[in-house]
């Protein structure tokens, strides 16, 4: 079994403002195999807080959380080895600056596996493998992580988690700050990892085009509540997504607009540009 949330709420407390509840009564189940899930929602909706629960970095204020058979409550339990959970569920943070610290990329990627009692040689091998997996060649191994470009840093930080070989991979906005081509390369990479190894991958993103094209299951957060959990197609068939502070993918928007302006009757639910084009051609020829 993977991760199960039972009525989980989490509140941040501060002296001046009192308690601020970031997520409220979340019920959710994520299986450990073959899932490819998008987590979307407006800024401040609680996506990141939800993600931090998934590898027990923070504990629920109320409710319980089950991660690979360990039950997480609001108190630290001495019997649970939290490090084991973090090995099983890898979480990549949004900004790579928070985790890069070694003088070479190789050493930095090795930091994760080495924390889980793996020999140096094995860790070196893992570092090389995972670096190649994120699309960087061996010449990067000896480079200083702080002299890389933003996109490269991001990939190195993802490689750092991949090297730990987690069963479930959670990524907080892995595509933010990347150019469009870089986004696709990275998304193809995640999809590929998901398909070849069967690892469950959860990705936080704001890009609805990516959500529509790549994901089959989508979770929508709105003001701390989980308001939607289901198939991507079902989400975008909804009439009004502004309630969720979301937008439609570009293909749907363009086709809807064409339908409206030219009085056509096209099927607007096309995932890629090519499919949309084919639909337009079909409609115009008629």
């Amino acid at each position: 079994m993977g991760i199960r949330f039972n009525e989980v709420s989490y509140g941040y407390s501060s002296f001046a403002q009192g308690l601020y509840t970031a997520i409220k009564d979340i019920n959710l189940e994520i299986t450990e195999k073959n899932e490819f899930i998008a987590l979307v929602g407006h800024t401040g909706s609680g996506k990141s807080t939800l993600a931090k629960h998934m590898n027990a970095l923070i504990f629920p204020t109320s409710g319980t959380l089950e991660i690979f058979g360990h039950t997480i409550t609001n108190k630290r339990n001495k019997k649970i080895k939290y490090n084991d959970i973090r090995k099983k569920v890898g979480l990549v943070f949004q900004f790579p600056e928070y985790q890069l610290f070694e003088e070479t990329v190789e050493k930095d990627i090795m930091f994760g596996p080495m924390n889980f009692k793996i020999t140096k040689e094995e860790a070196k091998k893992l570092a090389k493998q995972s670096l190649n997996l994120v699309g960087l060649d061996d010449s990067y191994l000896s480079r200083n992580p702080y002299n890389l470009s933003g996109g490269e840093k991001k990939r190195v930080s993802i490689a750092g988690i991949l090297a730990m070989d987690p069963d479930i991979l959670v990524l907080d906005e892995p595509t933010s700050g990347l150019d469009p081509a870089g986004k696709r390369i990275l998304m193809d990479l995640f999809k590929n990892i998901n398909e070849t190894t069967g690892k469950t991958i959860v990705i936080i993103t704001h890009d609805m085009d990516l959500v529509y094209q790549y994901f089959n299951r989508v979770l929508v957060m709105n003001d701390g509540h989980l308001v939607f959990d289901g198939k991507t197609e079902v989400l975008f068939q909804k009439e009004d997504l502004t309630d969720y502070h979301l937008d439609y993918p570009n293909t749907i928007k363009v086709l809807k607009y064409l339908n409206q302006e030219l009085n056509l009757n096209m099927n607007v639910f096309q995932k890629t540009n090519a499919e949309a084009l084919a639909e337009i051609k079909r409609a115009v020829r008629l």
């Binding site: 973090r86 090995k87 930091f111 924390n115």
Partner: peptide
Amino acid sequence: NKIMLAQASRGAD
């Protein structure tokens, strides 16, 4: 705090 969480999720206990 954020750095601590990021490193904790890389197994720095």
